[in-house]
Simulated assay, not measured.
Amino acid sequence: MSILLSPLTLRGTTFRNRIWLAPMCQYSAADDGLPTDWHLAHLGARAVGGFGLVLTEATAVVPEGRISPQDVGIWNDDQVVAWRRITDFIRARGALSGVQLAHAGRKASTFRPFGEGHGSVPVEDGGWTAVGPTGEPFAGYAVPQELPEEEILAVPGQFAAAARRALAAGFDLVEVHAAHGYLLHQFLSPLSNTRTDRWGGDLAGRAQLLLDTVDAVRAVLPDDQPLLVRVSATDWTEGGLTGEDTAQIAVWLREHGVDLVDVSTGGNVHASIPVGPGYQVPFARQVRDTGIASGAVGMITTPHQAEKVLTEGEADVVLIGRPALYDPSWPLRAARELGDDTPVLTHRPGSPDAAVVPGQVTGWVPQYGRGSWD
């Protein structure tokens, strides 16, 4: 058995393999942050395709926490009902579902990248005033409102309330989004957090909001349900967050009940990033070396590359993004290319005990098409 196709258990939750779908914004929500048939098709197809965990896109904990007006949320009960249909479908296909809880901070209220406009959406056009640790904007965006302390104190409760709704919606786990220049990352980075009160200053002060948020979310989750945090391990800019900073943050996260750190990079300031195959994997290794499980993401495109990340001890799982858009059945492809006959799919409609292995593909499973790997 390949490590990639082997199960992983965190707390009392077992994932059928270590191939996880990375969160990817779809900018396709209905009014008021409701997920739609698009999300059912997008996420459901990857569950059918064999992913062990299917993670949602950044899902706002409050309306003003959305990246764009077309982002999904989980701040009201109508959204819980809409998400439940999707999580039920994912579970019936043998995968687990996770929700990435997020607040965009100063990068909120922006146009989606579909040609409607650039930068921040004006309030008169359906946008809203974004917030951040200070009034310093992300380059090219509107000036945010600096969060007063009473509103900072409310943030952990907003994430906790969203986590409760996630449980009601049937999600198997929660990931707290502290990466890509969104609110919690904005507080972590000295490039965006120049506060001089207890929410700023040294790394411990800048990490306080993240740790308070993790504590609040962990308190509402069952003991057997894992908690993940996504981080940007470096800002790729002098004076910003470094891999060493993130290693220390990982230690604190483990002490506060986090089970796996999902390691990405960048997004808080414009930077020159040396993008290439596996360019973020060394940071996942640096986090894992602190004693907490880690996930590697970013330009991991082939099954053999993903297997190597795991066999060399650089991460415990791999998260697949754009390759999963090209090929919703990427895990089936991985099993075939690695010569692993471990059952990848553990359920099919009308036959809950059925298992499908590569080479025994039946009509309901996406057929191998004419691709570069076929």
Rank of each mutant, 00 (worst) to 15 (best):
F283V: 12
L8M: 12
V220D: 04
A161P: 04
A233V: 11
G267Q: 12
R322E: 03
G313M: 07
S109Q: 01
G12P: 14
I320W: 04
L188H: 01
G321C: 12
T194V: 10
A108L: 03
I86S: 01
R254T: 03
Y368M: 11
T237G: 12
E64G: 08
T110L: 07
A355V: 12
R66D: 10
Q70P: 13
L153E: 15
L319G: 02
A335L: 00
S2L: 05
P156C: 05
V99H: 00
L34H: 15
E337D: 03
A108R: 00
P349S: 13
E175I: 01
P148V: 04
P366E: 01
S28Y: 12
F138E: 05
R322T: 04
I74H: 02
R198A: 13
F89S: 04
P156K: 05
W83I: 06
F187G: 01
A216K: 02
V214N: 06
Q158D: 13
Y182C: 07
R230P: 01
R322I: 02
L10K: 00
E312I: 05
T110M: 11
S189M: 02
H304G: 09
R164E: 14
P274T: 07
G363I: 06
H118D: 10
H118L: 11
W75K: 02
S120T: 14
P69M: 14
F89E: 10
W128N: 04
Q367P: 14
D77Q: 15
A139C: 10
A58C: 14
K107W: 06
P23A: 14
P331M: 02
G94I: 04
V220T: 10
D245E: 11
A250T: 13
H270A: 15
E238V: 10
T134W: 08
R18C: 08
G65R: 03
V121M: 06
H42T: 10
L332D: 08
G132Q: 06
P352T: 11
A247E: 09
Q248I: 11
Q145K: 14
V365P: 14
E149C: 12
V155Q: 13
R370L: 11
D125M: 13
P226A: 05
V365C: 12
G278D: 09
A166L: 04
Q367L: 08
G98F: 03
V72F: 06
V62R: 15
G298I: 04
T301D: 11
L210E: 01
A142C: 09
E238T: 13
S68Y: 09
